[in-house]
Design a binder for these strands. Structure first.
Lengths: 222, 222
DNA sequence: CAGTGCTTTGAACGCTCGTTCAGAGCGGTT
DNA sequence: AACCGCTCTGAACGAGCGTTCAAAGCACTG
Protein backbone atom coordinates (compact mmCIF):
# COMPACT_ATOMS: atom_id res chain seq x y z
CA UNK A 1 0.00 0.00 0.00
CA UNK A 2 1.58 3.22 -1.15
CA UNK A 3 1.03 6.17 1.14
CA UNK A 4 1.69 9.86 0.89
CA UNK A 5 3.81 9.73 4.03
CA UNK A 6 6.12 6.75 4.07
CA UNK A 7 7.44 4.96 0.95
CA UNK A 8 6.94 1.19 0.88
CA UNK A 9 9.74 -1.35 0.58
CA UNK A 10 11.22 -1.75 -2.93
CA UNK A 11 10.46 -4.83 -5.00
CA UNK A 12 12.16 -6.14 -8.12
CA UNK A 13 10.66 -5.80 -11.59
CA UNK A 14 7.89 -8.23 -12.45
CA UNK A 15 6.56 -10.19 -15.45
CA UNK A 16 4.87 -8.08 -18.09
CA UNK A 17 6.18 -4.82 -16.61
CA UNK A 18 3.07 -2.72 -15.94
CA UNK A 19 3.21 0.90 -16.96
CA UNK A 20 5.35 0.31 -20.02
CA UNK A 21 5.41 3.24 -22.40
CA UNK A 22 4.13 5.73 -19.84
CA UNK A 23 6.15 8.92 -19.49
CA UNK A 24 8.00 9.19 -16.18
CA UNK A 25 6.53 11.35 -13.46
CA UNK A 26 8.01 13.22 -10.54
CA UNK A 27 5.26 11.78 -8.34
CA UNK A 28 6.83 8.32 -8.22
CA UNK A 29 9.32 7.80 -5.41
CA UNK A 30 12.32 5.45 -5.54
CA UNK A 31 10.80 3.04 -3.02
CA UNK A 32 7.50 2.58 -4.86
CA UNK A 33 6.55 -0.86 -6.10
CA UNK A 34 6.53 -0.97 -9.91
CA UNK A 35 2.79 -1.55 -10.16
CA UNK A 36 2.01 1.31 -7.81
CA UNK A 37 4.39 3.49 -9.79
CA UNK A 38 2.65 2.50 -13.02
CA UNK A 39 -0.73 3.37 -11.53
CA UNK A 40 0.51 6.79 -10.45
CA UNK A 41 2.07 7.48 -13.84
CA UNK A 42 -1.11 6.34 -15.57
CA UNK A 43 -3.29 8.44 -13.31
CA UNK A 44 -1.18 11.53 -14.01
CA UNK A 45 -1.51 10.86 -17.70
CA UNK A 46 -5.28 10.43 -17.90
CA UNK A 47 -6.41 12.65 -15.02
CA UNK A 48 -4.45 15.62 -16.35
CA UNK A 49 -6.61 15.41 -19.46
CA UNK A 50 -10.04 14.44 -18.15
CA UNK A 51 -9.83 15.42 -14.48
CA UNK A 52 -10.43 13.28 -11.42
CA UNK A 53 -14.16 12.74 -11.83
CA UNK A 54 -13.81 12.41 -15.60
CA UNK A 55 -11.40 9.51 -15.20
CA UNK A 56 -12.57 6.05 -14.15
CA UNK A 57 -10.63 3.46 -12.20
CA UNK A 58 -10.85 1.33 -15.33
CA UNK A 59 -9.24 4.11 -17.38
CA UNK A 60 -6.34 4.32 -14.94
CA UNK A 61 -5.90 0.54 -14.78
CA UNK A 62 -5.97 0.24 -18.57
CA UNK A 63 -3.35 2.98 -18.99
CA UNK A 64 -1.20 1.25 -16.37
CA UNK A 65 -1.60 -2.13 -18.05
CA UNK A 66 -3.31 -3.79 -15.09
CA UNK A 67 -6.82 -4.52 -13.86
CA UNK A 68 -9.06 -2.22 -11.78
CA UNK A 69 -8.84 -4.43 -8.71
CA UNK A 70 -5.07 -3.98 -8.48
CA UNK A 71 -5.53 -0.31 -7.65
CA UNK A 72 -7.17 -1.32 -4.39
CA UNK A 73 -4.22 -3.40 -3.39
CA UNK A 74 -1.85 -0.43 -3.62
CA UNK A 75 -4.15 2.40 -2.60
CA UNK A 76 -7.10 2.65 -0.28
CA UNK A 77 -9.32 3.97 -3.08
CA UNK A 78 -9.36 6.15 -6.16
CA UNK A 79 -9.48 9.09 -3.79
CA UNK A 80 -6.49 7.77 -1.86
CA UNK A 81 -4.51 7.65 -5.09
CA UNK A 82 -5.39 11.26 -5.86
CA UNK A 83 -4.50 12.35 -2.34
CA UNK A 84 -1.12 10.65 -2.61
CA UNK A 85 -0.40 12.35 -5.90
CA UNK A 86 -1.37 15.85 -4.83
CA UNK A 87 0.49 15.54 -1.55
CA UNK A 88 3.64 14.37 -3.29
CA UNK A 89 3.28 17.09 -5.88
CA UNK A 90 3.43 19.76 -3.22
CA UNK A 91 6.45 18.06 -1.67
CA UNK A 92 8.23 18.19 -5.02
CA UNK A 93 7.47 21.88 -5.44
CA UNK A 94 8.55 22.86 -1.94
CA UNK A 95 11.69 20.74 -2.11
CA UNK A 96 12.69 22.27 -5.44
CA UNK A 97 12.13 25.77 -4.08
CA UNK A 98 14.14 25.21 -0.92
CA UNK A 99 16.93 23.60 -2.89
CA UNK A 100 17.20 26.62 -5.17
CA UNK A 101 17.08 28.96 -2.18
CA UNK A 102 19.92 27.06 -0.52
CA UNK A 103 22.04 27.60 -3.61
CA UNK A 104 21.22 31.31 -3.75
CA UNK A 105 23.15 33.74 -1.60
CA UNK A 106 21.92 36.62 0.50
CA UNK A 107 21.06 38.96 -2.36
CA UNK A 108 17.28 39.42 -2.48
CA UNK A 109 17.31 39.59 -6.29
CA UNK A 110 19.14 36.27 -6.45
CA UNK A 111 16.72 34.79 -3.98
CA UNK A 112 13.70 35.93 -5.99
CA UNK A 113 15.32 34.56 -9.14
CA UNK A 114 15.78 31.27 -7.29
CA UNK A 115 12.16 30.84 -6.24
CA UNK A 116 10.93 31.89 -9.68
CA UNK A 117 13.31 29.44 -11.33
CA UNK A 118 12.10 26.60 -9.11
CA UNK A 119 8.44 27.44 -9.46
CA UNK A 120 8.51 27.86 -13.23
CA UNK A 121 10.75 24.85 -13.82
CA UNK A 122 8.51 22.54 -11.83
CA UNK A 123 5.41 23.80 -13.60
CA UNK A 124 7.00 23.32 -17.02
CA UNK A 125 8.76 20.02 -16.41
CA UNK A 126 5.94 18.51 -14.38
CA UNK A 127 3.23 20.17 -16.36
CA UNK A 128 0.58 17.48 -16.07
CA UNK A 129 1.22 16.98 -12.38
CA UNK A 130 0.94 20.73 -11.80
CA UNK A 131 -2.30 21.07 -13.74
CA UNK A 132 -3.67 18.23 -11.69
CA UNK A 133 -2.58 19.82 -8.45
CA UNK A 134 -4.12 23.15 -9.38
CA UNK A 135 -7.46 21.85 -10.57
CA UNK A 136 -8.22 18.84 -8.38
CA UNK A 137 -7.74 20.22 -4.91
CA UNK A 138 -11.51 20.51 -4.78
CA UNK A 139 -11.87 16.77 -5.39
CA UNK A 140 -10.08 15.96 -2.14
CA UNK A 141 -12.07 15.20 0.96
CA UNK A 142 -11.70 17.83 3.69
CA UNK A 143 -8.98 16.04 5.66
CA UNK A 144 -6.70 15.41 2.71
CA UNK A 145 -7.41 18.85 1.32
CA UNK A 146 -6.36 20.54 4.54
CA UNK A 147 -3.05 18.74 4.35
CA UNK A 148 -2.30 19.79 0.79
CA UNK A 149 -3.57 23.33 1.30
CA UNK A 150 -1.27 23.66 4.29
CA UNK A 151 1.68 22.72 2.10
CA UNK A 152 0.57 25.14 -0.59
CA UNK A 153 0.51 27.86 2.05
CA UNK A 154 4.06 26.95 3.04
CA UNK A 155 5.11 27.47 -0.56
CA UNK A 156 3.31 30.82 -0.74
CA UNK A 157 4.96 31.96 2.48
CA UNK A 158 8.37 31.25 0.97
CA UNK A 159 7.50 33.67 -1.81
CA UNK A 160 6.20 36.19 0.71
CA UNK A 161 9.32 36.00 2.82
CA UNK A 162 11.67 36.51 -0.13
CA UNK A 163 9.80 39.60 -1.30
CA UNK A 164 9.37 41.03 2.21
CA UNK A 165 13.08 40.54 2.85
CA UNK A 166 13.98 42.41 -0.30
CA UNK A 167 11.68 45.26 0.66
CA UNK A 168 13.04 45.43 4.21
CA UNK A 169 16.56 45.68 2.87
CA UNK A 170 15.52 48.41 0.48
CA UNK A 171 16.38 46.35 -2.58
CA UNK A 172 12.76 45.95 -3.68
CA UNK A 173 10.35 48.89 -3.72
CA UNK A 174 7.05 47.02 -3.78
CA UNK A 175 4.39 48.87 -1.80
CA UNK A 176 2.41 45.72 -1.06
CA UNK A 177 4.97 42.90 -0.80
CA UNK A 178 2.51 40.08 -0.13
CA UNK A 179 0.29 41.06 -3.04
CA UNK A 180 3.29 41.36 -5.32
CA UNK A 181 4.46 37.94 -4.15
CA UNK A 182 1.10 36.42 -4.91
CA UNK A 183 1.06 38.21 -8.26
CA UNK A 184 4.38 36.62 -9.17
CA UNK A 185 3.64 33.13 -7.91
CA UNK A 186 0.30 33.05 -9.74
CA UNK A 187 1.99 34.06 -12.98
CA UNK A 188 4.63 31.36 -12.52
CA UNK A 189 1.97 28.75 -11.78
CA UNK A 190 0.04 29.70 -14.88
CA UNK A 191 2.91 28.67 -17.15
CA UNK A 192 1.69 25.08 -16.78
CA UNK A 193 -1.57 26.09 -18.43
CA UNK A 194 -0.15 27.42 -21.70
CA UNK A 195 3.29 25.87 -22.13
CA UNK A 196 3.68 23.41 -24.99
CA UNK A 197 6.98 21.54 -25.45
CA UNK A 198 8.63 22.67 -28.65
CA UNK A 199 6.84 26.02 -28.56
CA UNK A 200 8.14 29.53 -29.12
CA UNK A 201 10.26 29.56 -25.97
CA UNK A 202 12.34 26.83 -24.35
CA UNK A 203 11.87 26.29 -20.60
CA UNK A 204 15.14 28.03 -19.75
CA UNK A 205 14.15 31.08 -21.76
CA UNK A 206 10.79 31.21 -20.04
CA UNK A 207 12.55 31.01 -16.69
CA UNK A 208 14.88 33.84 -17.62
CA UNK A 209 12.08 36.11 -18.78
CA UNK A 210 9.91 35.38 -15.78
CA UNK A 211 12.86 36.14 -13.49
CA UNK A 212 13.26 39.55 -15.14
CA UNK A 213 9.57 40.31 -15.08
CA UNK A 214 9.25 39.20 -11.46
CA UNK A 215 12.01 41.61 -10.47
CA UNK A 216 10.12 44.40 -12.21
CA UNK A 217 6.94 43.37 -10.41
CA UNK A 218 8.57 43.84 -6.99
CA UNK A 219 10.25 47.09 -8.12
CA UNK A 220 13.78 45.85 -8.04
CA UNK A 221 16.15 48.84 -8.06
CA UNK A 222 18.83 47.11 -10.13
CA UNK B 1 -33.95 25.84 -26.03
CA UNK B 2 -31.30 28.23 -24.74
CA UNK B 3 -28.26 28.63 -26.94
CA UNK B 4 -24.92 30.31 -26.57
CA UNK B 5 -25.58 32.39 -29.66
CA UNK B 6 -29.11 33.71 -29.75
CA UNK B 7 -31.25 34.34 -26.65
CA UNK B 8 -34.73 32.78 -26.74
CA UNK B 9 -37.96 34.74 -26.49
CA UNK B 10 -38.92 35.88 -22.98
CA UNK B 11 -41.74 34.22 -21.09
CA UNK B 12 -43.58 35.39 -18.00
CA UNK B 13 -42.84 34.00 -14.54
CA UNK B 14 -44.29 30.60 -13.74
CA UNK B 15 -45.80 28.73 -10.79
CA UNK B 16 -43.42 27.74 -8.04
CA UNK B 17 -40.67 29.97 -9.42
CA UNK B 18 -37.78 27.58 -10.11
CA UNK B 19 -34.36 28.69 -8.96
CA UNK B 20 -35.62 30.48 -5.87
CA UNK B 21 -32.88 31.30 -3.40
CA UNK B 22 -30.08 30.87 -5.91
CA UNK B 23 -27.58 33.74 -6.12
CA UNK B 24 -27.78 35.68 -9.38
CA UNK B 25 -25.23 34.97 -12.08
CA UNK B 26 -23.80 37.01 -14.92
CA UNK B 27 -24.34 34.04 -17.22
CA UNK B 28 -28.09 34.55 -17.40
CA UNK B 29 -29.25 36.89 -20.16
CA UNK B 30 -32.37 39.07 -20.03
CA UNK B 31 -34.17 36.99 -22.67
CA UNK B 32 -33.72 33.64 -20.93
CA UNK B 33 -36.76 31.70 -19.84
CA UNK B 34 -36.94 31.55 -16.03
CA UNK B 35 -36.44 27.79 -15.88
CA UNK B 36 -33.43 27.93 -18.15
CA UNK B 37 -32.06 30.78 -16.05
CA UNK B 38 -32.59 28.74 -12.89
CA UNK B 39 -30.75 25.79 -14.42
CA UNK B 40 -27.81 27.98 -15.37
CA UNK B 41 -27.67 29.57 -11.93
CA UNK B 42 -27.90 26.16 -10.30
CA UNK B 43 -25.20 24.73 -12.56
CA UNK B 44 -22.87 27.61 -11.70
CA UNK B 45 -23.51 26.99 -8.04
CA UNK B 46 -22.85 23.26 -7.93
CA UNK B 47 -20.33 22.88 -10.76
CA UNK B 48 -18.08 25.57 -9.29
CA UNK B 49 -17.73 23.34 -6.24
CA UNK B 50 -17.66 19.82 -7.66
CA UNK B 51 -16.70 20.40 -11.29
CA UNK B 52 -18.50 19.33 -14.43
CA UNK B 53 -17.95 15.59 -14.13
CA UNK B 54 -18.45 15.71 -10.37
CA UNK B 55 -21.91 17.20 -10.80
CA UNK B 56 -24.85 15.14 -11.99
CA UNK B 57 -27.85 16.31 -13.97
CA UNK B 58 -29.92 15.41 -10.93
CA UNK B 59 -27.75 17.68 -8.76
CA UNK B 60 -28.33 20.59 -11.12
CA UNK B 61 -32.05 19.95 -11.38
CA UNK B 62 -32.42 19.66 -7.61
CA UNK B 63 -30.55 22.94 -7.05
CA UNK B 64 -32.77 24.59 -9.66
CA UNK B 65 -35.92 23.19 -8.10
CA UNK B 66 -36.96 21.17 -11.15
CA UNK B 67 -36.62 17.66 -12.50
CA UNK B 68 -33.74 16.21 -14.56
CA UNK B 69 -35.84 15.89 -17.70
CA UNK B 70 -36.47 19.63 -17.82
CA UNK B 71 -32.82 20.25 -18.53
CA UNK B 72 -33.22 18.48 -21.86
CA UNK B 73 -36.04 20.75 -22.88
CA UNK B 74 -33.89 23.87 -22.48
CA UNK B 75 -30.50 22.51 -23.46
CA UNK B 76 -29.35 19.82 -25.84
CA UNK B 77 -27.52 17.99 -23.05
CA UNK B 78 -25.50 18.47 -19.89
CA UNK B 79 -22.58 19.28 -22.16
CA UNK B 80 -24.65 21.82 -24.07
CA UNK B 81 -25.43 23.59 -20.80
CA UNK B 82 -21.73 23.76 -19.93
CA UNK B 83 -20.87 25.03 -23.41
CA UNK B 84 -23.47 27.76 -23.12
CA UNK B 85 -22.13 28.84 -19.76
CA UNK B 86 -18.46 28.95 -20.75
CA UNK B 87 -19.21 30.75 -23.99
CA UNK B 88 -21.29 33.37 -22.23
CA UNK B 89 -18.64 33.73 -19.55
CA UNK B 90 -16.07 34.72 -22.14
CA UNK B 91 -18.53 37.17 -23.67
CA UNK B 92 -19.00 38.81 -20.28
CA UNK B 93 -15.24 39.12 -19.77
CA UNK B 94 -14.55 40.54 -23.22
CA UNK B 95 -17.49 42.94 -23.05
CA UNK B 96 -16.37 44.24 -19.65
CA UNK B 97 -12.83 44.74 -20.91
CA UNK B 98 -13.88 46.60 -24.05
CA UNK B 99 -16.27 48.74 -22.07
CA UNK B 100 -13.51 49.81 -19.70
CA UNK B 101 -11.17 50.45 -22.62
CA UNK B 102 -13.75 52.68 -24.27
CA UNK B 103 -13.93 54.76 -21.11
CA UNK B 104 -10.14 55.05 -20.88
CA UNK B 105 -8.32 57.66 -22.91
CA UNK B 106 -5.16 57.37 -24.94
CA UNK B 107 -2.73 57.13 -22.05
CA UNK B 108 -1.21 53.64 -22.01
CA UNK B 109 -1.14 53.59 -18.21
CA UNK B 110 -4.85 54.40 -18.09
CA UNK B 111 -5.52 51.71 -20.65
CA UNK B 112 -3.61 49.09 -18.68
CA UNK B 113 -5.45 50.17 -15.55
CA UNK B 114 -8.68 49.72 -17.47
CA UNK B 115 -8.04 46.16 -18.61
CA UNK B 116 -6.75 45.19 -15.17
CA UNK B 117 -9.82 46.70 -13.54
CA UNK B 118 -12.14 44.82 -15.87
CA UNK B 119 -10.29 41.53 -15.57
CA UNK B 120 -10.00 41.61 -11.79
CA UNK B 121 -13.54 42.88 -11.24
CA UNK B 122 -15.05 40.12 -13.34
CA UNK B 123 -13.00 37.46 -11.59
CA UNK B 124 -13.99 38.76 -8.16
CA UNK B 125 -17.64 39.53 -8.83
CA UNK B 126 -18.24 36.44 -10.96
CA UNK B 127 -15.91 34.26 -8.98
CA UNK B 128 -17.71 30.95 -9.42
CA UNK B 129 -18.29 31.54 -13.10
CA UNK B 130 -14.62 32.35 -13.58
CA UNK B 131 -13.40 29.30 -11.70
CA UNK B 132 -15.69 27.21 -13.85
CA UNK B 133 -14.40 28.81 -17.04
CA UNK B 134 -10.80 28.27 -16.04
CA UNK B 135 -11.11 24.65 -14.97
CA UNK B 136 -13.73 23.13 -17.25
CA UNK B 137 -12.47 24.09 -20.67
CA UNK B 138 -11.09 20.59 -20.85
CA UNK B 139 -14.57 19.14 -20.38
CA UNK B 140 -15.80 20.71 -23.62
CA UNK B 141 -15.89 18.67 -26.77
CA UNK B 142 -13.42 19.85 -29.42
CA UNK B 143 -15.86 22.00 -31.37
CA UNK B 144 -17.21 23.93 -28.40
CA UNK B 145 -13.74 24.19 -26.91
CA UNK B 146 -12.33 25.77 -30.04
CA UNK B 147 -15.01 28.43 -29.86
CA UNK B 148 -14.30 29.33 -26.25
CA UNK B 149 -10.54 29.15 -26.69
CA UNK B 150 -10.82 31.54 -29.61
CA UNK B 151 -12.61 34.03 -27.39
CA UNK B 152 -10.05 33.58 -24.67
CA UNK B 153 -7.36 34.38 -27.21
CA UNK B 154 -9.23 37.54 -28.16
CA UNK B 155 -9.13 38.61 -24.52
CA UNK B 156 -5.41 37.83 -24.29
CA UNK B 157 -4.72 39.83 -27.43
CA UNK B 158 -6.41 42.84 -25.88
CA UNK B 159 -3.89 42.63 -23.04
CA UNK B 160 -1.05 42.17 -25.52
CA UNK B 161 -2.08 45.18 -27.57
CA UNK B 162 -2.34 47.48 -24.56
CA UNK B 163 1.12 46.54 -23.34
CA UNK B 164 2.70 46.66 -26.80
CA UNK B 165 1.17 50.07 -27.39
CA UNK B 166 2.63 51.39 -24.16
CA UNK B 167 6.04 50.02 -25.08
CA UNK B 168 5.89 51.47 -28.59
CA UNK B 169 5.09 54.88 -27.16
CA UNK B 170 7.97 54.61 -24.74
CA UNK B 171 5.67 54.75 -21.71
CA UNK B 172 6.30 51.12 -20.70
CA UNK B 173 9.80 49.67 -20.63
CA UNK B 174 8.98 45.97 -20.71
CA UNK B 175 11.53 44.02 -22.71
CA UNK B 176 9.11 41.23 -23.58
CA UNK B 177 5.69 42.88 -23.86
CA UNK B 178 3.70 39.73 -24.65
CA UNK B 179 5.22 37.80 -21.77
CA UNK B 180 4.59 40.70 -19.41
CA UNK B 181 1.00 40.87 -20.66
CA UNK B 182 0.48 37.20 -20.00
CA UNK B 183 2.16 37.59 -16.62
CA UNK B 184 -0.34 40.28 -15.69
CA UNK B 185 -3.44 38.60 -17.05
CA UNK B 186 -2.60 35.34 -15.30
CA UNK B 187 -2.20 37.16 -11.99
CA UNK B 188 -5.53 38.92 -12.47
CA UNK B 189 -7.24 35.65 -13.34
CA UNK B 190 -5.85 33.99 -10.25
CA UNK B 191 -7.70 36.37 -7.96
CA UNK B 192 -10.79 34.18 -8.45
CA UNK B 193 -8.91 31.31 -6.83
CA UNK B 194 -8.10 32.96 -3.51
CA UNK B 195 -10.59 35.78 -3.05
CA UNK B 196 -13.14 35.40 -0.26
CA UNK B 197 -15.88 38.00 0.22
CA UNK B 198 -15.35 39.81 3.49
CA UNK B 199 -11.63 39.06 3.46
CA UNK B 200 -8.65 41.29 4.13
CA UNK B 201 -9.16 43.42 1.03
CA UNK B 202 -12.33 44.69 -0.62
CA UNK B 203 -12.63 44.17 -4.40
CA UNK B 204 -11.87 47.84 -5.14
CA UNK B 205 -8.73 47.69 -3.05
CA UNK B 206 -7.60 44.57 -4.85
CA UNK B 207 -8.22 46.28 -8.16
CA UNK B 208 -6.20 49.32 -7.09
CA UNK B 209 -3.25 47.23 -5.92
CA UNK B 210 -3.25 45.04 -9.00
CA UNK B 211 -3.31 48.13 -11.19
CA UNK B 212 -0.21 49.45 -9.45
CA UNK B 213 1.57 46.13 -9.56
CA UNK B 214 0.68 45.60 -13.23
CA UNK B 215 2.22 48.98 -14.08
CA UNK B 216 5.39 47.91 -12.30
CA UNK B 217 5.36 44.63 -14.19
CA UNK B 218 5.41 46.41 -17.56
CA UNK B 219 8.01 48.92 -16.30
CA UNK B 220 5.81 51.96 -16.34
CA UNK B 221 8.00 55.03 -16.16
CA UNK B 222 5.55 57.11 -14.10
C1' DC C 1 -65.04 26.17 -24.58
C1' DA C 2 -62.65 23.29 -27.59
C1' DG C 3 -58.12 23.40 -29.50
C1' DT C 4 -53.12 24.43 -29.80
C1' DG C 5 -48.44 24.54 -28.51
C1' DC C 6 -45.16 24.80 -25.15
C1' DT C 7 -43.51 23.10 -20.60
C1' DT C 8 -43.25 19.72 -17.01
C1' DT C 9 -43.76 15.19 -14.98
C1' DG C 10 -42.43 10.52 -13.43
C1' DA C 11 -40.83 6.42 -14.72
C1' DA C 12 -37.83 3.95 -17.18
C1' DC C 13 -33.75 2.67 -20.47
C1' DG C 14 -29.05 0.76 -20.82
C1' DC C 15 -24.74 1.66 -19.18
C1' DT C 16 -20.75 2.71 -16.38
C1' DC C 17 -19.27 3.78 -11.95
C1' DG C 18 -16.24 2.56 -7.51
C1' DT C 19 -15.52 -1.25 -4.98
C1' DT C 20 -15.24 -6.16 -3.22
C1' DC C 21 -13.79 -10.91 -2.93
C1' DA C 22 -12.69 -15.73 -3.38
C1' DG C 23 -9.30 -17.96 -5.57
C1' DA C 24 -5.13 -18.45 -8.68
C1' DG C 25 -0.14 -17.57 -9.40
C1' DC C 26 4.32 -17.38 -7.72
C1' DG C 27 8.95 -16.32 -5.32
C1' DG C 28 11.31 -17.31 -1.10
C1' DT C 29 11.87 -19.75 3.23
C1' DT C 30 11.92 -24.04 5.94
C1' DA D 1 8.06 -30.68 -1.05
C1' DA D 2 5.11 -28.18 1.73
C1' DC D 3 4.16 -23.73 3.16
C1' DC D 4 3.65 -18.74 3.54
C1' DG D 5 2.80 -14.15 2.22
C1' DC D 6 2.21 -11.11 -1.24
C1' DT D 7 0.30 -9.82 -5.81
C1' DC D 8 -2.91 -10.30 -9.34
C1' DT D 9 -7.23 -12.11 -11.78
C1' DG D 10 -12.00 -12.17 -13.28
C1' DA D 11 -16.43 -11.76 -12.13
C1' DA D 12 -19.73 -9.67 -9.69
C1' DC D 13 -22.31 -6.12 -6.52
C1' DG D 14 -25.48 -2.24 -5.95
C1' DA D 15 -25.69 2.45 -6.97
C1' DG D 16 -25.87 6.22 -9.79
C1' DC D 17 -25.11 8.03 -14.35
C1' DG D 18 -27.02 10.77 -18.81
C1' DT D 19 -30.81 10.52 -21.43
C1' DT D 20 -35.55 9.46 -23.40
C1' DC D 21 -40.56 9.45 -23.81
C1' DA D 22 -45.49 9.13 -23.46
C1' DA D 23 -48.64 11.48 -20.97
C1' DA D 24 -50.30 15.33 -18.14
C1' DG D 25 -50.61 20.37 -17.15
C1' DC D 26 -51.42 24.80 -18.39
C1' DA D 27 -51.67 29.59 -20.67
C1' DC D 28 -53.21 31.11 -24.53
C1' DT D 29 -56.05 31.89 -29.19
C1' DG D 30 -60.15 31.68 -31.93
Amino acid sequence: MVSAEKPAAPVGARRGSPGEGLPPTTLVLPGDEPTAAALIAAAVEVMAVHGYHGTSVRDIAAAAGTSPAVLYHHFTSKHGLLATMLDRGMDVLIAATEEELDLAGEDPADRLRAVVRAHVRVHLESQRESLLGNSELRSLEPGARRLVVAKRDVQQRIFDRVVRDGVRRGVFGAEHPDDAARFVSAACTSTAAWYRPGGRLAPDEIVARYQEIALDTVRYRG
